[in-house]
Design a protein around this nucleic acid. Structure first.
Lengths: 137, 137
DNA sequence: CCGGATCCTCTAAGATACTG
DNA sequence: CAGTATCTTAGAGGATCCGG
């Protein structure tokens, strides 16, 4: 299957559906962190990611929970406690994410070099051609 | 040691850099299609993707070219002809993308089911969400 | 401590029209 | 045919207040 499959159009919807979640920067981080840490509370996640707003973290977790990738456990204690963890499905997602992560680590330098190369070749493009990552901090 | 392992944090920048490209739905499609077709002209790509605006396709291709993932060959003929293809780097990217694609194909049904399940448990998800939500346990 | 609701900003995608 | 330029709009994302 994958890209050489002639019935690619059937996978296309699924892929673009999944990409909408994967493409979300926070979702990938959350899955990665939960995969390593096992179980974390809301503020532990928030502190770990360090840069995510509480709103985005909430939304991200809701989406992941809705997709069956993350579990949400509420402990009705006096100081409210909510713990998040990966479902089995979420754990399987780690595999392709890891693949992507490895590829990034391996080829990132090449990409940076290619960009520098490209920018050097462009004579009249004084302004930044591509979008930049969200300015954090 | 905090959960953000230093060995991973070095990859984090690379990952988020790459994710900004992968997360782009059009980029993934272009890489996938070029991987299967080998070489395509601008309008062939546009017709194949069928839904992308010419502006987005141009931007996508520029970014991919800038990152060294796609080659752009101009034939100075009377009717202008420009052909796009994958670079070697672009071809290696197909591997992790395929992994993701396969995962999507395999688990998309589960996700859809999980969503339906989740939505069924939620009181009013349409447009009136003003409800006390945490009734799960 | 968790997170819903609200307000506001700023980017990026889409449509359209024009050039080489 | 391939690509650029311009305008408009939707919504992603941050900050903040408040309530369970």
């Amino acid at each position: 299957m994958s890209l050489t499959d002639t019935s690619q159009s059937s996978n296309c919807a699924a892929m673009s559906d999944v990409l909408n979640r994967i493409g979300d920067k926070w979702s990938v981080l959350v899955v990665g962190i939960l995969g390593r840490s096992g179980t974390l509370r809301f503020n532990e996640l928030k502190r770990t990611i360090n840069g995510v707003s509480q709103r985005m973290l909430t939304l991200t977790l809701r989406n992941l929970e809705r997709d069956g990738l993350v579990t949400r456990t509420i402990y009705p204690e006096v100081p409210p406690r909510v713990e998040y963890g990966l479902t089995e499905l979420g754990k399987t997602l780690q595999v392709p994410i890891s693949g992507l992560w490895d590829w990034s680590a391996e080829h990132h330098a090449t990409i940076v070099e290619a960009r520098a190369n490209y920018d050097a070749r462009q004579p009249g493009t004084d302004n930044a051609p591509a979008k930049i990552a969200y300015a954090r901090g």
